[in-house]
Design a protein around this nucleic acid. Structure first.
Ligand SMILES: Nc1ccn([C@H]2C[C@H](O)[C@@H](COP(=O)(O)OP(=O)(O)OP(=O)(O)O)O2)c(=O)n1
Ligand SMILES: [Mg+2]
Ligand SMILES: [Mg+2]
Length: 738
DNA sequence: ATCCTCCCCTAC
DNA sequence: TAAGGTAGGGGAGGAT
């Protein structure tokens, strides 16, 4: 059993599917058999998921170069002034007369702190101190640090050469007291003693930011003070951002890649009515192929009396109550608890809440406007830090410096999947998508906390509408300043931190965010682009996941700098026209995509690949009823109808038994088949009829079916009149399925 | 050339 | 126990 599971794990996330038709990415030179066998027989190959190796390997002790840091510094000052002048109060004068209690004190901040680098800089500046971006013994009087990584403890050079290492609360408390308090009580303790588990793995990470606990030891005590101070200086005023006239582009722009942009109201309580154009994005690892299994037994569920080992229950017994067999409302119940459903429908929930998004009437004008704009383009990318964990942990201060991950289940079986891990957990190698048992193997003291979907929704609502967003702030003022204010406001409103990346395009802004994490802001100036890209591995580029990384590796292309020495022609030949172009451009920091309005949805569908178990065809047909009802409802909610109906089926791969994941789909072959009907429909009856017909056409043994999906494409807006009009449609009506 | 179907890949 | 969804980009290869 253990051996089987090990094998299964080693195969997880590796592609073991059939490769029935042409390979994706057009690499015909890769015989499909070869790919399969390589992946199946290479247990060493990486890990369970692609982002494993893609984890931050950048280091660079210095966060900002002189230019950008000075810029930030100035921005902070400007932000304060602007905020208060807009407020129409005399606070600006107050600032200037504020006691300069930190006169003569110069700090350098090391690692992750709360308040953050930026906020500490801001505070020091206000209260007469100096904030150094580089550590220089001659200039710095105090090192500010929340937690001290082992690497530093072991390295006497970084032990500050005699300078005091002090927690950031010293700054905060001193300001609250109106005078500089003695730093002695705020000296940093060796956290290694308090968190012995951290000792083992930290050296594996080069990025010092990942080396320590991200949150202060006394978050709750610290927070109110911090919050109060921020209220003085960073209270938002809507006029400051003045983002109402952000130029927008539409779908007719030249770029072929579109990002599903959405309008959202930023921090609606505080910035009522300010519409910001942003779009959603994506940036994590994919979910990949699920697993393999060593068992050759027949499907366990067939024999309901069969008992499994150890845990005292059997999957077959569980299936009676936890699968499509035992629950007539399985689809809806399942989606209520599915994190992937939750994040997959995030943009839709959000879209319906904030109204219409398909109005592109102004798009062309804005495109022209943008083309004429002479200013430097500026894009901000905002992303919440370990979002699902942060939301839960914010009300559990006892957990904030402990390794924590979000998962449904904390059982011994450990086949629950981790949704998000905080930074202490990541220091042990825990990642989203991991099974709990693997995470626990890396981090025995890992705390598992349950989801809180309602809270995610509320926080996202107050913050960025979903976990992340792009903003085009060209001509809107200093982008770093805007980003900094947004970050502050998100924290104020949600007590969760977000990181921000600022640069001239979406690609660079997103890459900057990754560098800024956690709880930071990073700006990539045009002059820095080349050096920045040089450091990156190919898989750091958005759009390069496990598969493409492996293909590039086989051509000896590992880093972005490697991509510079091959021709675009070669890349396009090898990986396809678009993909090759993307690789060539991205490696140079070039990204012509615009931050866009929401695009028109092209498909609506629902699928379930968990808990799907059928014994007889009637079971499958009953499931298709609930699935088609779900999809019809979604079509009607979105006020669209569609003409092409596609059914996806996952079937247990030959030779693979019950998956080790509880109620999982295991290793499957995927099939899809579609039917185009004569006119666009949102009718559940028609969807069901077509779905049944497609399902039956596969002629599978239903006991092998492990997943079913139903998708509708060729969408038309309801009331667009296209669905039934004139002789054309009458002729087409003959194609209506029966 | 362009469209269509059947995939795979990626990101959240 | 556990909740492995959703949508777009894009490639191959055939039909038109
Ligand atoms: N495989 C994944 C990836 C993400 N998520 C969920 C949980 C995350 O909290 C949220 C946002 O995804 P991110 O990729 O932004 O990850 P985090 O916000 O957790 O971490 P980071 O600080 O790296 O952004 O989506 C998930 O359930 N499963
Ligand atoms: Mg994100
Ligand atoms: Mg995030």
């Amino acid at each position: 059993m253990a051996g089987e599971e090990k094998e299964e794990e080693s195969l997880k996330r590796k592609k073991v599917d059939n490769v029935p038709r042409g390979m994706a990415w057009g690499a015909q030179s890769f015989a499909s058999a070869r790919i399969s066998s390589i992946r199946e027989k290479d247990p060493s190959s990486v890990s369970d998921f692609g982002r494993y190796m893609a984890e931050k390997r950048r280091k660079l002790n210095v966060q900002y170069n002189e230019d950008s840091s000075n810029k930030l510094l100035n921005n902070a000052t400007a932000a304060v002034a602007a905020l208060h002048s807009k407020e129409g109060q005399i606070v600006v004068a107050e600032i200037s007369t504020k006691s300069r209690i930190f006169n003569g004190i110069s700090i350098w901040v090391d690692g992750f702190t709360v308040p953050t680098h930026q906020e500490l800089r801001h505070l020091m500046l206000q209260y007469g101190g100096v904030f150094e971006n580089y550590f220089r013994r001659e200039l710095v009087t105090h090192i500010i640090c929340s937690t001290l990584p082992d690497s530093k403890i072991k390295n006497p050079r970084s032990l500050s050469r005699g300078l005091p290492i002090v927690k950031p609360e010293w700054i905060v408390d001193s300001i609250a007291a109106g005078r500089v308090l003695s730093w002695a009580p705020y000296q940093l303790q060796r956290i290694a003693l308090e968190h012995p588990n951290q000792r083992t793995l930290q050296s594996a990470y080069l990025n010092p930011k990942l080396d320590h606990c991200p949150l202060p030891l006394d978050w709750r005590d610290n927070y109110p003070t911090y919050s109060n101070m921020m209220d003085i200086d960073l209270e938002p005023r809507s006029e400051l951002l003045a983002l109402e006239n952000v130029p927008t582009s539409d779908n007719q722009g030249p770029s072929s890649v579109q990002d599903g942009a959405v309008n959202f109201t930023l921090l609606e309580e505080d910035l009522k009515g300010i519409e910001v154009k942003a779009d959603e994005c994506s940036e994590t690892e994919n979910q990949g192929v699920l697993e393999s299994h060593g068992k050759k037994d027949s499907v366990a569920i067939v024999d309901r009396s069969k008992r499994n080992t150890g845990a005292g229950y059997s999957d077959a017994a569980a299936a009676a109550t936890h699968s499509t067999l035992g629950d007539d409302n399985f689809v809806q119940n399942y989606f209520k608890s599915s994190r992937l459903h939750f994040i997959g429908t995030w943009r839709n929930r959000y879209q319906s809440r904030y109204g219409s998004f398909n109005d592109n009437s102004e798009g062309q004008d804005q495109q022209v406007f943008r083309a004429k704009s002479g200013s430097d383009p500026a894009v901000i990318h905002i992303d919440m830090d370990c979002f699902f964990v942060a939301v839960v942990v914010r009300d559990r201060p006892e957990l904030h410096d402990k390794p924590v991950a979000v998962c449904h289940s904390d059982s011994v079986r450990g086949s629950g999947e981790i949704s998000s891990a905080n930074y202490p957990a990541r220091a042990f190698g825990v990642r989203a998508g991991m099974f709990v048992r693997d995470a626990k193997a890396k981090c025995p003291d890992l705390e598992i906390v349950p989801y809180n979907f309602e809270a995610y929704e509320q926080v996202a609502d107050k913050a960025v509408s979903c976990d992340e967003a792009f903003l085009d702030v060209t001509d809107q003022g200093d982008p770093c300043q805007i980003a900094s204010v947004i970050r502050s406001q998100i924290f104020e409103a949600t007590r969760c931190t977000a990181s921000a990346g600022v640069s001239k395009n979406k690609l660079l802004a997103r890459l900057a965010t990754r560098k800024a994490k956690p709880n930071g802001l990073y700006y990539i100036a045009p002059s820095e682009v080349e050096g920045f890209m040089d450091e990156l591995a190919v898989e750091d580029l958005p759009g390069v996941g496990w598969t493409l990384k492996e293909k590039l590796k086989s051509h000896n292309l590992h880093k972005c700098s490697d991509l510079l020495r091959v021709s675009k022609d070669f890349l396009q030949r090898e990986f396809g026209v678009k993909t090759g172009d993307m690789l060539w451009s991205y490696a140079r920091g070039i990204d012509t995509r615009e931050v866009q309005q929401a695009q028109i949805r092209k498909s609506i569908g629902a699928e379930v690949n968990w808990g799907v178990r059928f014994l007889v065809p009637e079971d499958a047909h009953r499931f298709l009823v609930t699935l088609s009802t779900e999809v019809a409802t979604r079509l009607q909610t979105a006020a669209v109808k569609g003409r092409t109906i596609t059914l996806k089926v996952k079937r247990r791969k030959e030779g693979s038994g019950e998956p080790s994941k509880f109620m999982g789909c295991g290793v499957c072959d995927n099939f899809s088949r579609s039917e185009t009907v004569g006119y666009a429909t949102d009718s559940q009856e028609i969807l069901l009829r077509v779905a049944k017909q497609l399902f039956n056409s596969f002629a599978f043994d239903v006991r092998d079916v492990r997943g079913v999906g139903l998708q509708v494409t060729r969408l038309e807006a309801v009331g667009s009149g296209q669905s039934l009009k004139g002789a054309f449609s009458l002729r087409m009506l003959f194609k209506i399925p029966d």
